[in-house]
């Protein structure tokens, strides 16, 4: 049943990439438990605009859990306390009246803050540009049913491919490692015959780029998997390591 909440928000405000940031405290009142977390921020922003203050900058777009644009570290968790969802799908019924909520941007060396809660995740794009594809041009491809693929492999490739590139894995990792993100793409393409041809090269190129961009190493703490809104499994990291080691042995 719908109720309303009065909350205290501690929000990270930072004017720009080089500026020094700090927490600002805001009170919001009569927030419906049916509102989404981002709608709660919208309400706060409308209030700030009404007071001629600058609204909080944050990333968001589809608001249905698939584009991967929304971020926010909420009470110490990427995408907040509820499981298997993004911040835009988090609803206020997960909080209690009178609670203080702490909201921060992704904190990771490779994701510098742009403003307030907005960070630069272009490092993920650069990793994909280094090899997260099958090297084919448009046209001239064989019939889609020319190569049968086992349902098991196709389904596992699909699970890996469900990654939304939000960055929660690297943000959650104490080492700031992007291994879950990178392995999801390496794994998806290694499982399919179309991607198999370049599997070794791909693993090496993407891992080299990841290292170059300042992401940390994996120490198997599993925080990435626990915080992934799409349940991408760390078994993909194991598969990527096999691909990578196999490629290195061949070198």
């Amino acid at each position: 049943m719908e109720k309303s909440l009065n909350l205290t928000l501690k929000v990270w405000r930072q004017a720009g990439p080089k500026a020094k940031g700090s927490f600002e405290t805001y009170k919001v009142e009569n927030i419906s438990t049916d509102a989404s977390f981002l709608e709660m921020i919208d309400i706060l922003n409308e209030k700030l605009i009404g007071d001629h203050k600058e609204p909080i900058a944050f990333d968001h777009d589809c608001r249905e859990g698939i584009c991967g644009m929304c971020s926010m570290y909420i009470n110490g968790h990427p995408h907040g306390p509820d499981g298997e969802i993004t911040t835009c799908q988090l609803h206020m019924r997960n909080f209690s009246d009178g609670e203080t909520i702490t909201i921060e941007p992704w904190r990771s060396a490779a994701f510098p803050v742009i403003k307030d809660l907005m960070v630069d995740r272009s490092a993920y794009d650069k990793i994909i540009q280094a090899g997260g594809y099958v090297s084919i041009n448009t046209g001239g491809t064989p019939d889609a049913n020319a190569i049968p693929i086992s349902k098991v492999n196709a389904d596992e490739a699909m699970d890996a491919a469900s990654c939304i590139g939000c960055g929660a894995c690297a943000a959650a990792c104490k080492n700031g490692s992007a291994m879950l993100f990178v392995s999801a793409k390496v794994s998806q393409l290694a499982l399919l015959p179309q991607g198999r041809v370049e599997a070794a090269h791909r693993a090496k190129a993407m891992i080299a780029k990841m290292d170059e961009l300042g992401f940390g190493n994996c120490t198997n703490t599993g925080a990435c998997e626990a915080e992934c809104p799409k349940n991408v499994s760390i078994s993909h990291i194991a598969r990527m390591n096999r691909e990578f080691l196999g490629a290195k042995f061949k070198d």
């Binding site: 099958v134 448009t138 046209g139 491809t141 049968p148 196709a154 389904d155 399919l192 179309q194 991607g195």
Partner: peptide, 22 residues
């Protein structure tokens, strides 16, 4: 039809049945 061929070649994991076809 070309679109489906193109996407499969890119590694788009379309649903398949047990025989391995789309």
């Amino acid at each position: 039809n070309n679109i489906i061929d193109q996407c499969v070649a890119q590694g788009v994991p379309f649903a398949r049945d047990y025989g391995g076809l789309l």
